[in-house]
Amino acid sequence: MESPGIILAFWVLSAITVAGCAMVLVARNLVHALVFLVLAFLGMAGLFLTLSADFLAVAQILIYAGSIAVLMVFAIMLTPLAARDNANSLYLLPALASGLGMAAIVSFVALVTPWAELKGDALAQNDPPTTVAAIGDLLLGRYVLPFEVASVLLFFALLGAIVLVHERGSRESQ
């Protein structure tokens, strides 16, 4: 039941996302780059919506457009002596090469993977699909181990950040 509107939206959003990403690379101003990055994130959230993954879309906005972008805001603000404009990059060619390599790998994987698509009657039955419950089931059922490993990893990252800051603070107070 792919209505033309959805397909149109998909392409428009894809264009926005790709353009946003390209502008992140091109923009010479850190904050401008950040704004384009957020645009790309929002486009991505829209893509998720067109693919009926509404929870994922909302999570994308919440985590990426909301939190990650703010984190970057902080990074930019707290960078000492950060000029408004980027300096000329010394790593243009290597960056281009590695970027193209990554793109190739991602495209390859996307094309090769046998996606479990819903078709015909199955699609009709699952309308609208309840992604929240499904994601919850998967995270705490089939993929519980990776999920927990990721949690532990993040937890240690958090601890590490606290330790770093704490050490500095205590040294200052001495």
């Binding site: 904050v31 704004v35 906005i61 919440l62 909301g66 939190s67 609208p128």
Partner: peptide, 26 residues
Amino acid sequence: DLNVGVVYTIAISSLGVLAVFLAGWS
């Protein structure tokens, strides 16, 4: 009436931060 209404609410409210930051920075 989104089935993820609560998360949507939080997500939308987190977007305002960016505008505020841009306003202050620019």
